[in-house]
Amino acid sequence: MSEFARVLATLRQIRGLSPFFALDLGRPDESWHDGEALLDGGPALPDALDRIAARYRTAERRVAASLFFLGYTARLLSPVVAARAVDGVAPDVRPANLWWRYGPDGVQVRLKDPVAGVDVAESLEPVVEAIHAVTPVARGLLWGNAASSAAGALGTVGRGGVTGADCLALGAELFADPPLRGSGEFIPFPGEVAFRRRSCCLYYRLDGGGTCGDCPLPRR
């Protein structure tokens, strides 16, 4: 079986887990940006952050940046983690192989080609640096968002048939090296994949916002 066929087979296998695991392919309409627009210093990324800030009524650009990256990593790491969990071929989610947009449904992504990917750090690091370049949000916070998205995906996969032990083993593998190492810890909890991160995504700073289930801060 070719690499294209193996990636496509994996994407078909996992897409039913939830909408966040469905990763579509192909060139979309003109409302989408090339993935490289995240990195080129142009207006696409700042414009998306401005729209998030307006939508959530926050004057803190770092909060908007955090929310953007939470959505981005949830959309990308869900299929990547699920592919690894079902022993499939994880897709290439580097910016060069993506289309993206921010709209009423939040951050959305599409693949250009069904090819095999690289590790999480290499896939996300350019985007972390691009976001950090346009707003003073801590890199550790952004990597904590990635860790939260990966752990959340493991929890969904665990409820979809993969054993908790296998999910935790994959989590330990994914978080074994920087920059995810030290971003949080898995907590023993019967029948679930429970995770607590070591940084906060700043959601509590929104009007009416609270703390997330994996937040290290006291509940608000």
Results as ranks from 00 to 15, higher is better:
residue 6 R to V: 08
residue 10 T to A: 04
residue 10 T to S: 12
residue 14 I to P: 02
residue 14 I to T: 03
residue 15 R to T: 09
residue 16 G to P: 10
residue 17 L to C: 07
residue 19 P to D: 02
residue 20 F to K: 03
residue 20 F to H: 09
residue 22 A to W: 10
residue 22 A to Q: 14
residue 26 G to E: 10
residue 27 R to H: 14
residue 34 D to W: 12
residue 34 D to N: 13
residue 35 G to R: 01
residue 39 L to E: 10
residue 42 G to E: 03
residue 42 G to D: 04
residue 42 G to I: 04
residue 45 L to G: 07
residue 46 P to Q: 06
residue 47 D to I: 01
residue 47 D to C: 07
residue 50 D to I: 09
residue 50 D to V: 04
residue 50 D to W: 11
residue 52 I to G: 05
residue 52 I to W: 05
residue 52 I to H: 09
residue 53 A to P: 06
residue 53 A to G: 04
residue 55 R to E: 14
residue 56 Y to L: 13
residue 58 T to W: 07
residue 58 T to K: 08
residue 59 A to Y: 06
residue 61 R to G: 06
residue 62 R to T: 13
residue 63 V to L: 15
residue 64 A to W: 06
residue 65 A to C: 13
residue 67 L to E: 02
residue 68 F to N: 02
residue 71 G to Q: 03
residue 76 L to D: 03
residue 76 L to P: 00
residue 77 L to E: 08
residue 77 L to R: 11
residue 80 V to L: 05
residue 82 A to K: 04
residue 84 R to I: 01
residue 86 V to P: 01
residue 89 V to A: 13
residue 90 A to Q: 01
residue 90 A to R: 02
residue 93 V to T: 03
residue 94 R to P: 05
residue 94 R to H: 08
residue 96 A to V: 10
residue 98 L to F: 10
residue 99 W to I: 00
residue 100 W to T: 07
residue 101 R to M: 09
residue 102 Y to L: 08
residue 104 P to S: 10
residue 106 G to F: 09
residue 107 V to R: 02
residue 109 V to L: 13
